[in-house]
């Protein structure tokens, strides 16, 4: 759906904003595009949409080269780039009519109907007649999304689509993204909200300082990045942390840490031809047999955030 080879953009006299990017977005995926501010996500999206000419490398969208095939490709792509931009002196509906009129592939006879449907879909039908300058940020964001949904699209490129929305709005947009994906639309979603990516995306890529750090299915990503032990940590809450550490160590757990009454450790990796790793239920029984009093017991799945911090080593600060 999207494929780039060595995609590079250097602005006048600076270090590359995007550096040798090889991105592969499979058809039908919900692809999360992650990275701190300033890591080159928006520059990449602008190159994919033909707004910026790459300094080097190639980009193909829907199988055709960009920016060369803008006319053939973009009518099949809906995009929300770096937040919504609207004509404040036009109503929400007239904003959509204007963007639709700009698309030579859009049929003017069905315009009113398509505009109405897009407004319905993002929950703006009631405010469609209001001037856009009176919209809240969340409403502007919805109108931007509606513009991306004026036609049935094969690909949706959404740059921070839940920015400025309240939690309820975020849930609605995520539900909408899932719904669109279920209809077969490929969604390319950039976000700095890791749990958002984790909730809705099937695939993800991580950018840092203009370079691609990793990409692949979300499930595999955390495991691959965190490596052995990436399957999860065991957490035990107990008034006897020292005894708990001793018992768990005997059962092969590594990286054991006691923090107050909370003990965590990594479950050992199952070797391909060795003994099976200990069952958490067995571990619990062993703790109790050894006289360790257990208040709470469970495993924690590693989050994408763990993977992200491991990858970029910088958390979410602006890249310098």
């Amino acid at each position: 759906m999207i494929e780039t080879r060595g995609l590079t953009k250097t602005y006048r006299g600076g270090r590359p904003a995007v550096d040798g990017l090889d991105l592969a977005v499979p058809r039908g995926s919900v692809f999360g595009f992650l990275g701190p501010n300033g890591s080159g996500k928006t520059t990449t999206i602008r190159m994919l949409m033909g707004l910026i000419e790459p300094t080097a490398g190639t980009a193909r969208v829907l199988g055709q080269p960009m920016p060369g095939a803008v006319r053939q490709v973009l009518p099949r792509v809906g995009a929300l780039i770096e937040g919504p931009a609207l004509y404040g002196f036009l109503s929400g509906r007239d904003n959509l009519r204007r963007f639709d009129a700009a698309d030579p592939a859009a049929d003017p006879r069905t315009r009113s109907e398509r505009v109405g449907r897009a407004l319905d879909r993002v929950g703006l039908a009631a405010a469609a007649g209001k001037k856009a300058r009176a919209y809240s940020l969340g409403m502007k964001q919805r109108l931007g999304l509606a513009a991306a949904l004026l036609q049935p699209r094969e690909l949706l490129v959404l740059d921070e689509p839940t920015n400025g929305l309240d939690p309820q709005g975020m849930r609605e947009i995520r539900a909408l993204v899932r719904e669109l994906a279920a209809d077969g639309t490929t969604v390319f979603l950039s976000s700095h909200l890791l749990d958002e990516i984790e909730q809705v995306c099937t695939h993800a890529a991580v950018m840092a300082r203009g370079r691609l750090v990793t990409q692949g299915p979300v499930a595999g990503l955390t495991a691959a990045v965190l490596g052995p032990g990436g399957h999860g940590r065991l957490a035990v809450t107990t008034p006897d942390p020292a005894d708990a550490v001793r018992v768990l160590k005997e059962h092969g757990l590594t990286g054991l840490r006691a923090d107050g009454d909370r003990v965590t450790g990594e479950l050992p990796e199952a070797p391909p031809d060795g003994p099976a790793p200990p069952d958490p239920a067995e571990l619990n029984a062993a703790l109790v047999r050894a006289g360790v009093r257990v208040r709470a017991f469970g495993t924690q799945r590693p989050s994408l955030e763990d993977a992200f911090v491991r990858l970029t080593g910088e958390g979410f600060d602006v890249a310098g």
Binding site: G50, R71, E82, A85, Y87, F99, D103
Partner: peptide, 13 residues
Amino acid sequence: TGTLRYLLVAPAG
């Protein structure tokens, strides 16, 4: 106002 980028990805040409 940023509307230029949306006209161009519409794509206005």
